[in-house]
Design a protein around this nucleic acid. Structure first.
Lengths: 344, 344
DNA sequence: CTGAAAGCGCTTACAG
DNA sequence: CTGAAAGCGCTTACAG
């Protein structure tokens, strides 16, 4: 058998029918005689024939593939979003391609790099919006606009207000304010926030919630308690360690809110190095409830942001065509890293 | 402008040239007059035109897309492999689609489900081989054979011997034997192995190395020290906890080799619950050097299996067309969870 | 330097 | 129930 060619023509020829008939059999249409059907199916099976989805796409204008744009997958949060989206897509018969965040943010000579994605003629794309310096906002906006000519878009994350696309987000202000409330009710007054870069929407809202929480409790905003950090454990460790070193022990915060669980791990390490016991002398709260959170010492209190369902909802929203912006739900996961303030 | 249609015909018409000329401009061919080129490029830019890679694929027989088959992405190891492969693919101009492990292992009515992948006409596929019950080996073999008619394949992981494909693997027997050696040299004699399911190639080789290490040190193989566990932290915790409970403290192992870092985390938790101090009373060694390993208490000794470079090497191998089987390198990452045996 | 035409592997009206 | 033919949006010899 000549396996160098294995197209609908080969099947048709071998079965002694037209390609139209083969196509009908392939699609399981009724109007084919049982005898013909069996003959065709036998040939298909024998040759392991599988129609080319790309030729199919030519006429159907559909690829049954969704795209997802992620800054990086090594960050377990993004892996969770990806997984949620991927599983949902798969159930609905789509496969999933990953693309770099770069592709919608960087510049290129003539054409907008978002159009690299457009080339793929995906059935839709989910874009996880990450921190982007303000001077690049205009470019992002332009990219999305051009990309949208080719496929529907859903955004995930804390998206700048002026981007009007269907979006799945979380209410970082609400979450952070809620954390401050809880810490205040535990008697904490010196509450640090180890957060991300300025200009980040995500972080912006975190700061809003932080300040709102402090105000409600009539606590002052203290500059040195607002710690700037990247998103990794190393970043968190370095940043918080420096904060502790620069402060007199009497002024050390008694509680720290970390931007995520990895940063929280780093803060815990920094605290240990400075001889602080957790939670007796320092309460630590993370975010995202990573798989390792319960295995830290002490087990880390965190906020479950349900990243996996965010991914899933994004796919559903994308495929529904609705123009909706919704916030994901979230919940406390209380463990031992956070307790009442025992220092006055 | 009629944006409902945006094809090479529209560009050609608006620029007053033939589609052949547009195609030449798109591909940056030299044999186009400067004047024509500029006219065409202006139209392309104005309309944000991007050629359909799917139509392109019709003639070029190439999709510039690679596939990767992974059991799941939430396991950080697979996320690392994916990332390594993805970054490498991207650099070389390919995008990457993910497919479920199911697609090469499960059954279907008429056609082999691996052919679902074949439909996509990918330029190649990387398959991370996971544990598969022996009764399904034949099916896997058949799937791969059929899939191979459509695209080149590279396998990752501890692959059954009789699958003759280019493979990136790691030498689990060597690694495990080496770990036993080290533990023996630290004075340990009661060494437990918390490992995966029977029948798994990966696990099989781990057992080979374990027994070889024990033999070299003239230590007996003790049934109850060979603990069966799944791959998650919860699995490890449950399995090791049960082992400790079923043994008299005098018979407790003084060292435990975990199948990966997540299981190691679980073992540490189980040990703590039984009042064991690490490493004074129990040394723990993980595998894969997860990002959280240095942040556990005590920091976890692990083996760095360089999963990311495995992914990268898999892409390189796939694209090179070489029929090679190679082992990935690995190295010790010594931290505080492992120390000399202090119990006699 | 440029264009007309065939072809890639399918699907889908349209006839019969 | 079945087939001939057009069309999807490109690329690529082949002429000129």
């Amino acid at each position: 058998m000549n396996q160098s060619s294995n197209t609908i023509y080969d099947i048709a020829e071998e079965a002694g029918v037209s390609i139209a008939t083969v196509s009908r059999v392939l699609k399981g249409e009724k109007n084919v005689s049982e005898k013909t059907r069996q003959r065709v199916e036998a040939v298909i099976t024998r040759r392991n024939y599988r129609p080319s989805s790309i030729a199919r796409g030519m006429t159907s204008k559909t690829t049954h593939t969704l795209g997802i744009v992620l800054p990086k997958l090594l960050n377990p949060n993004y892996a969770m979003i990806f997984t949620g989206a991927y599983e949902c897509a798969r159930r609905l018969g789509y496969s999933m391609s990953m693309f770099p965040w770069r592709s919608v943010t960087e510049n290129e000579d003539k054409v907008n790099p978002a159009l690299l994605l457009a080339e793929r003629r995906l059935d839709g794309v989910i874009i996880c919006v990450e921190y982007l310096p303000p001077e690049h906002h205009e470019r992002l906006k332009q990219s999305l606009k051009e990309l949208q000519q080719y496929m529907p878009i859903v955004l995930i994350g804390c998206v700048p207000e002026d981007l009007d696309y269907p979006t799945i987000s979380y209410n970082m202000a609400e979450i952070t304010c809620n954390i401050v409330d809880e810490l205040v009710s535990l008697g904490h007054e010196k509450i640090a926030l180890v957060g991300g870069m300025a200009g980040d929407q995500d972080q912006f809202r975190r700061d809003v919630g932080y300040r709102r929480g402090l105000e409600k409790a009539h606590l002052p905003f203290v500059d040195s308690y607002r710690v700037w950090s990247g998103g990794s454990a190393e970043d968190g460790e370095a940043a918080f360690s420096q904060t502790l070193s620069s402060l007199l022990p009497a002024h050390w915060p008694t509680a720290v809110i970390a931007l995520n669980d990895m940063v929280a791990m780093g803060c815990m390490a920094a605290a240990r190095q400075h001889g602080l016991r957790i939670p007796e002398e320092l309460s630590v709260i993370g975010c995202d409830n990573l798989f390792c959170a319960p295995y830290l010492q002490p087990p880390l209190t965190s906020i479950d942001t349900h990243q996996q369902s965010m991914g899933q909802e994004a796919v559903e929203l994308l495929l529904s065509g609705r123009k909706e912006r919704k916030n994901a739900r979230w919940e406390w996961v209380r463990r031992d890293s956070c307790g009442p303030c025992s220092i006055r």
